[in-house]
Amino acid sequence: MTSTSAPAVEAAPAAVGDGVSAPPSPPRRSAARRFVDRYGQRYGTLTVLVLLAAYFTIRTENGLFLSSANLSTILQSTAILAIVAAGLTPVLVIGAFDLSIAGNLVLATLLSAKVAVATGSTDAGILTALAVAGLVGVANGVMVTVLRVPPFIGTLAVGLFILVGFQQKVAPDGTVSLGLPANFGTWGQGSVLGIRYVVWIAVGVLVLLHLLLRVTVLGRHMYAIGSNPDAARLAGIRIGWISVIAFTISGLACGLAGFLTASLFGLGSAQAGGSLLLDAFTACFIGASTFIVGRFHIVGTAIGVLTLGMLTNGLTLTGWSSDDVPIVKGLVLIIAVAAAGLLGRRS
């Protein structure tokens, strides 16, 4: 017993040394790499935001960029984008896309003005914008979950073709401006404590959706679906219903933003969408590189919106042409998506 067991005990180390190599130990990271891994992934976007503010402050005369008047301008100019991007975030959380947001907002803008003119009631315009845009969101959700149409293709078709067709029916000349009620511009142009109502509304939407995603069961289920839909289904989560809810939230946000856009400018215009689609996705993907890497969340989306607002405002103040701004935004989107993917894999 003793003579046969002893060689076996001695053989194990010999086998390792003679042919089977031990698993390689992970390479040691430098102090700089450890710092980047620990802080860069969470606070890199905030660092960029601070650097942008410092750069534009230095480049503008008398620190105009950080003046209270200019900061108020940035908030006002990004309020509509903040509402739309906040509504888009739950859709991205569940792992889907909504490319109809710009078309939905434009339709809501035209309808709110058209109905307000026809009825003489601003309230009717608001309710119509919310109802129609919300129904578009419901239709998107049903199309994706019931008809199994890929969200990228389905919502792109809705936004670029179907909604554009309805826009032309509502306003063949592309604008609705004559005969609006006297109080139609109150919500977009009015202010309290020196801050426009539209900014306060945007803050309220951001807070509401942050709480929904952060502390409610619905929010946790949305994250579960986005993380692993198969596991979520096995856990009893109703993926179809929750997906429809996410698209409906996006639609309602577009409806609200559409009315506020018409109220802000005092007319309904088919040009209201502008670069909204690119800007909303850029803000959300910048947010996915902030605090919680690779995860969409409302706080990150808000930071993304502020980053775009500061970038656009700063480039304008420092003499960049209007043609350069969309180029820079496109580059920012590419960098944000690449950073979110790279940092997500490393974490």
Rank of each mutant, 00 (worst) to 15 (best):
F184I: 07
G103T: 13
L211W: 08
D98F: 02
T128P: 03
V205W: 13
L317V: 06
R59A: 14
L110I: 02
D37H: 10
T73Q: 09
V293K: 05
V117T: 12
L213R: 11
T175D: 13
G190V: 11
D279Y: 01
M222D: 01
G63L: 11
V149W: 03
L180Q: 02
D323F: 12
A340W: 06
S21R: 15
G294V: 04
E10F: 12
I239D: 04
H210S: 08
V115W: 08
V199Q: 05
I286S: 03
G255R: 06
R38F: 08
G137I: 08
G255V: 09
S72C: 04
G137H: 08
I239L: 15
A231E: 08
P13F: 12
G319H: 10
M1E: 14
W187A: 15
S77M: 09
S177A: 14
K329I: 15
I201W: 05
Q76V: 13
L110A: 02
R345N: 05
A82M: 15
A235L: 10
S269N: 09
S289V: 02
V16F: 01
R345T: 05
L92T: 01
L278V: 12
S68V: 15
A302F: 14
V299L: 15
A235M: 13
L211Q: 11
A53I: 14
V16K: 07
T175P: 02
V199H: 11
S121M: 09
W200Q: 11
V115S: 02
S263I: 12
T109H: 04
K329P: 04
G159Q: 07
G17L: 15
G19N: 07
P229E: 07
I239Y: 01
T60H: 00
L206N: 00
S191G: 01
S77Y: 06
I225N: 09
S68E: 05
R148A: 08
T312E: 08
A32K: 05
A232V: 12
S112M: 00
F166E: 01
M310F: 15
V144N: 13
L52N: 00
S269R: 07
D279W: 00
L234W: 09
V244H: 03
W241P: 02
A280H: 04
I201K: 07
G309W: 11
F166D: 02
M1H: 10
A235S: 15
P172A: 11
W187K: 03
S25D: 05
L193R: 02
G87Q: 00
I201A: 09
E61Q: 09
A235K: 11
L306K: 04
I298Q: 01
T175G: 05
M143Q: 11
T318L: 07
V144F: 03
A8S: 06
I334V: 15
A6V: 15
S243K: 11
L75W: 10
R346I: 11
I239F: 02
L218N: 13
R238C: 01
G204Q: 10
D123T: 14
Y223L: 08
T119H: 06
L81D: 06
G268W: 07
T186H: 09
T318H: 03
A118Y: 01
G341N: 15
A14P: 00
V325K: 10
F291H: 07
I126D: 00
G319A: 06
R233D: 13
G236I: 13
G125S: 04
V244A: 02
V144E: 10
M222W: 07
V91G: 01
S269C: 04
